[in-house]
Design a protein around this nucleic acid. Structure first.
Lengths: 235, 235
DNA sequence: TTATACTATTTATCTGATGAATATACTTTA
DNA sequence: TAAAGTATATTCATCAGATAAATAGTATAA
């Protein structure tokens, strides 16, 4: 018996039965049964929907429900996106969290980086510059996201990773990148090149300083206000 | 029209209708109606359950559903508790996040503290010491939680606060405090006294160092292993 | 005025039915 | 024989309706 009550028959069942990631849960009609959860189908579906929204399980027709590998990001993303959808000013607050988080874990994360990671980050920069010089291709958002997430990948900490992933998802969903212009993006990727160079030289503190300077480039406030304007006009 | 799709008719409705915290949502049967969500009662209830699990709404008989003030903690807590219920080693990882987070925001947070906050923290220490000297009263967990949360209260950042609150909730739910002994707790509160003294003296860096030292006191690993033992034996 | 009982509204839970998706087994065909 | 298409049974997806439980507000009585 687990000492932690999750307030959900389904989640408690998963824990107590030691269901492993990838494993299949009983079908809904089986779960409903007295021998499993002992609650109605409606209740099972409500709890399944919560588990699905939190990214804990994947539910598909025929195959049934499968327990996923633990991921912190979906829960963060959903709560954060709701906040952002109601008021974009929350992005500024989450950005502060993100910036402080990256700065705090910086040295630890850099020390764990492998050669292949650095090569990948170098490739991100190259791909981003290529996109920048082709005016028909959209902003190199994926490269930006991949570059930063790679820095902290080796920490192997799902909570850190989850928060950072949710940040980029939110950045994407709120379409905050559509305001970036060419000059701004050029500066951004100059910074990234200096960050990576410093990391490769083993000067993590220099890299961190470049990162801090680079975050100062981001000026969400005017964009947020502009976005709010658009929302008001559109409704 | 909000540019952010939350993948839920209910959540999108709340955003688009600009429902304010404290306001009441239509009853379930009304929401079901074509003029509102246009989905069945079961579907409405599934989405309500998700919103409730995330702490976004409060749903009660007769009163109906009320939108709550935004709170990041419930989403974090639920995901974290599920992880912990399955494997206590996740606590160590979340602890790292918490420690780095507090260190990163330390100066900023301390600079915002008011006199009443410091007085409250002083009272926490006194209350904790009183409990420590009365062997019949349980471990001063509430005081410990209140002390740390107060430091970051004035940041007024729901994401920072939410993560820290979830940390303490998880600490509580996993009953990790039951392993603390008298000597350990004495040392802990000596640290807290030095932290507060340094803050009051305006030496935030000294306070931060005391905090960092104080986190080194915590040794979850043996307790976590012991806890896992108990779980295995109990099942 | 205050305490109690009643009533209407709303959520809570369950049951059953139908439609949609899909993995598996089977059949057909080159 | 092997590949492609088909059939079917299982499972999820969604809906509708019924009954029970909770409760805010109203009416009633001491």
């Amino acid at each position: 018996m687990s000492p932690i009550d999750l307030g959900s028959e389904l989640l408690n069942y998963i824990v107590q039965q030691h269901v492993q990631p990838g494993e299949r849960l009983p079908s809904i009609s089986e779960l409903q049964d007295e021998t499993h959860l002992g609650i109605s189908i409606s209740k099972v579906r409500e709890q399944l929907e919560v588990a699905r929204a939190l990214g804990l399980v994947e539910v598909r027709s025929k195959t049934g429900t499968r327990l996923k590998e633990y991921d912190f990001a979906p829960a963060v993303r959903l709560s954060l996106l709701f906040a952002l959808a109601r008021d974009l000013h929350y992005f500024e607050l989450f950005s502060q969290l993100r910036n402080h988080l990256e700065v705090a874990f910086w040295h630890e994360a850099c020390a764990l980086l492998q050669e292949e990671d650095k090569a990948f980050m170098r490739a991100c920069i190259a791909a981003a510059r290529a996109k920048l010089n082709d005016r028909w291709i959209r902003i190199p958002h994926q490269e930006h996201r991949a570059f930063h997430l790679t820095v902290f990948k080796r920490l192997d900490n799902p909570f850190v990773t989850g928060l950072l992933e949710a940040y980029w998802d939110a950045y994407d969903a709120a379409e905050l990148n559509q305001y970036a212009d060419y000059d701004y993006l050029q500066k951004v990727w100059d910074y990234h090149e200096r960050i990576l160079d410093a990391i490769c030289a083993g000067d993590y503190e220099q890299a961190r300083q470049e990162f801090i300077d680079h975050t100062r480039l981001l000026r969400y406030q005017p964009r947020v206000q502009e976005m709010q304007q658009k929302v008001v006009e559109g409704s």
